[in-house]
Amino acid sequence: MLETFEAFVGVNFWTMIFAWCNLLILYFVLRKLLFKPVKNMIDSRQKEIDDMYSDAEKLRADSEVMKADYEEKLSHAQEESEEILKHAVRRAQLREEEILREANDKASRVMKRAEEQVEMEKKRAINEVKNEVSDMAIGIASAVIERDISREEHEALIDEFIRTMGDS
């Protein structure tokens, strides 16, 4: 069979039509099979990564805010506890002073009463001594002068005597 060839540099209209058909088919098939799915895959992955990063960024910002919040609260709490402690100390001091004062008062009251009692006992003792001394003096005097002067006179005499003694 004789082999026939086309011209080396020549245009065959039907070959052009075949070329167009092949190009068209390839265009549609490759677009559907290759370009679009791969591009979509790349884009969706890119989007996913972007989303993940923005989410992480958002979470980080949130946690930053929360951290600041907690720190503020913490420092606040510290201040508060210091305040409470100070308050308690002051109250305890006040109470201590009060208790001391009360105790002092009580003690001084007791002392005063004791002193009064002592004073009263002294007075009574003095009175008793005085009575006895006057009785004794009466007895001695009546024995000495053997004169029975009335008791009232004697007592008045002795009282006067004591007063003058006390005055001198």
Partner: peptide
């Protein structure tokens, strides 16, 4: 319609790429 080597090659390329 001449069916040439080019026609066959075009078809082969198309099939291969697809």
């Amino acid at each position: 319609i001449k069916i040439t080597q080019t026609t066959v090659s075009l078809l082969a390329v198309t099939v291969l790429l697809i």
